[in-house]
Design a protein around this nucleic acid. Sequence first.
DNA 1: TTGAAAGCGCTAACAC
DNA 2: GTGTTAGCGCTTTCAA
Lengths: 378, 378
Amino acid sequence: MPSQDTGWAAYGMTEGRGRMARGGRRDGGTRGSRVVRATDRRTPEGPATLATVAARAGVSRQTVSNAINNPALLAEDTLAKVERAIADLGYSPNLAARTLRTRTTRLIGLPFEPAQEGTANALMDRFVHTLVEATREMGYHVLLFASDPTDSERGYARMLRSTAVDAFVVTDTYRGDPQVEYLQQRGALFVAFGRPWDQAEAIHPWVDVDGAAGVAQATSHLADRGHEVIAWLGWTADQPIGEDRRAGWMGTMRARGLSTTRLSVRGDGTMEYGRRATHALIDARKPTALVCVSDTVAMGAMRALHERGLVAGRDVAVVGFDDSQVAQTVSPALTSVRQPLEEVALGIGERLEKLLNHRPIEEPGLLLQPTLVVRETS
Amino acid sequence: MPSQDTGWAAYGMTEGRGRMARGGRRDGGTRGSRVVRATDRRTPEGPATLATVAARAGVSRQTVSNAINNPALLAEDTLAKVERAIADLGYSPNLAARTLRTRTTRLIGLPFEPAQEGTANALMDRFVHTLVEATREMGYHVLLFASDPTDSERGYARMLRSTAVDAFVVTDTYRGDPQVEYLQQRGALFVAFGRPWDQAEAIHPWVDVDGAAGVAQATSHLADRGHEVIAWLGWTADQPIGEDRRAGWMGTMRARGLSTTRLSVRGDGTMEYGRRATHALIDARKPTALVCVSDTVAMGAMRALHERGLVAGRDVAVVGFDDSQVAQTVSPALTSVRQPLEEVALGIGERLEKLLNHRPIEEPGLLLQPTLVVRETS
DNA sequence: TTGAAAGCGCTAACAC
DNA sequence: GTGTTAGCGCTTTCAA
């Protein structure tokens, strides 16, 4: 175990801390009557505080505080003096003290769901990273917390009661979950990644991706290339996201006067489902193009084509959704709809900022357009 | 914008807060001389505090504190009384106040690097999730922060100075980075995901995966199946992880008395590199099996095979590393070495707990064994 | 076993 | 423009 005692060392240590924290610290002695116990050694133990900086700069603590939070209030030379001292001492405000005073943690809570070995993983990664960056620029950090799967409110409740975060980002507004309602009732601040599918009246800030538009784009792209028998491989009808994407296919087909009869299939999102559905579709309707609700399903479709000696992109076009790593790696490379996750995170960041600063949000909902990444399979 | 004022509403609001926070709160009036300004209304604004609970239970604040932190000290019935009150009021201690007092945030800092569109994404996801779970059980949360890419110490420094976290998890000890040194000098608490490759003397707690053993396993597997000309497709020699994995191949080949001459290739980790290297290897040495440093490289290899009309798994065996989603999805499915990321996170959690409780860590370093997931390509 | 007092480092309110 | 005072909610002596 390392045991360096350089710097203020013993950071986060309990033993001996009580003692340390006692004497010596408040070198200014703003309250004259205070009895300084133990040794009054001046060695800087622990990080600098407002008092340390104030003493060094020859001003009061409040002035240092103002220099940080309200620099405009200070005279130019005072400000310079204080800033010097801050730099010299390497001072950063103690976050806990600030939080206690301002009732503001500068933390954003992000529930981190179990990673299902499948779809959304890499997506989340792109999203979370941009969110971290965006919130950092606002002066916030992202706090991960496991939302109890059995009782999803548990996780939130604790965070709320203990004043642990200023706001939440809710990432799965899908399947009309009660999270949103719960948070709204509590008056908690949050922005959702995902539309309020069922509760149309609830107008909380949200950002989402227009899946229908993405699939419409894909379908148009195929139609433009001369395809007329274009099939849809979707999720089960209870999933709003899947149905939304399906609507994009359906709308485009209708608009182009193309038949959709027996060309729409639904099922769980597995590869095996994609494979079987593709075989069945080919037997029944001989589609020349397949639009899939996800890359995973598309991979199943490609496998089925392979099994029949058909080549994806030459004999039958295939389009996926998500632009996952698989889409980019597989051969032939899969055309896929890419979600603008970075933009989503940015949009959420903007809304969070307004929420946290109590500024009005003119446009609570933001629907972003995905882009079609055309590769070899179409 | 939502404007419910249910519950303690206005949570995190600035306006009017000063007023709210003033009167009424300290209903016990522990310090008799304190002048209570404004109205002394009893309506519970804001979450319950120690004082609220104490008043309700008819005990002092300290007793409530003890009930939470040192229940053994209390008489049975007093404890029961207090616990009742806590439950009734839905009380959770204010984290900021506790932090200010104890100098303990119960937060673990995790630097979140830019997501490179490629290798490790889904990996991180598996890891982070388990880490969140493990630390939650210890009563900690995970705080994400962007470590400045240009000046990696920047991010840490800020977190340290502002007493924002109790400990760090450092995730890329690879390429002998200065982070570790920096943190050690500061006496900061941390556990590394990754061995201390260069600075052998530095004994900080770490957990890592034995890449060499994983590749050795893969190579043995191939040799057992009768392969004798087994090639290695690695990363450039400056990457310790890559060299470690390569050593697994090399060691096994030697142990089995198989030649390695002109069978080892190195390059960047791209698919294109994997593809070209495979073509070159086949031209030069006609290997019957390819062991790859990553799934990405393996995908390149498979593409090359495909281009030559060879079938992976039948004509030439291929093994990857990471067991990424691609490995599971591609056809034929890729045999790959899977890292026990959940165990890594668990091991890190254990070490963190000991570190934070100032308990000795008997075994600072933990090297975990990956497993070979055999699929169609071998 | 329980209670009283003090103070962690900061900022809001107000006085000068 | 700067300083003074009070107190956020908690835990830690220390006294009863």
